[in-house]
Design a protein around this nucleic acid. Sequence first.
DNA 1: TATTGTTATACTCTATAACTATA
DNA 2: TATAGTTATAGAGTATAACAATA
Lengths: 140, 140
Amino acid sequence: MLTRELGLFLKRVVFANNREFFRALQEAGISFTQLKCVGLLVEAGGPMSLGALSEELALSPAAVSRAVDGLVQRGELRREEDPEDRRSKIVSLAAKGRATYDRIIAVRLAGVRSFVEELEPGERDALGSALHPIIERLSL
Amino acid sequence: MLTRELGLFLKRVVFANNREFFRALQEAGISFTQLKCVGLLVEAGGPMSLGALSEELALSPAAVSRAVDGLVQRGELRREEDPEDRRSKIVSLAAKGRATYDRIIAVRLAGVRSFVEELEPGERDALGSALHPIIERLSL
DNA sequence: TATTGTTATACTCTATAACTATA
DNA sequence: TATAGTTATAGAGTATAACAATA
């Protein structure tokens, strides 16, 4: 029962916003995979090898190599040889990449915010009270 | 504050499950766009023209035409001329399409369910109590 | 020899444009 | 002439395989 209701809720909040989100991606001139590359580096909080990116994204090394290449050319990411293993490339976030990520994620959050604003005050309070301990416990 | 927490929550519940979801799609031999076509027909509760599908999916008529063509060939959907306007094609759900949709959506719901099962009883109750009136009011 | 990443090639999905049939 | 849908063509993104450099 809760599973079903939570499923409906997720669908409503996430997918209502999809069109604007993909338009924002297009305007930024960045692909969905490229956004995920940047996002992964943001969340990791530090550099990652190309192989690690490939693993996390569940994409082929070839695809990630191409995606990263585009981002490096645009100045969103940096790519350097690992001095400890020169086969490996270390990919890291440039300031521009961080800004691009924040800008696109803001579009997603705006969708969530507009949903929250549609809630009635009592609904909002109850949702906040329910989510807060979950977020805390799972360290989200 | 609630917006941010809800955003983290959504991300956690939806994307934790993505890998299995896309594997299920691949095993079903159906593309994401094709799943959305079928899903739209399921939710509409009746047939739609190809143009209406194209509009709802925000995809070109050409892309939807190809996606539907594949689904028709596999027996997931039916496509017939509209007797009232023979330029228009009426696309409707076949039993196989409905079954395919249910099977793939079950994978998504399994992800939601496993999240719900991770919750502690008090968290689960609070979340259910918060979501229920929202679902009711928005008729989700 | 094995591993990391890149390049070559083929495939899928998409949009735009040209086209067919119907209105 | 306009509209609904299909087919032709080109572009983006991906996987597999072949390759280069390093271990």
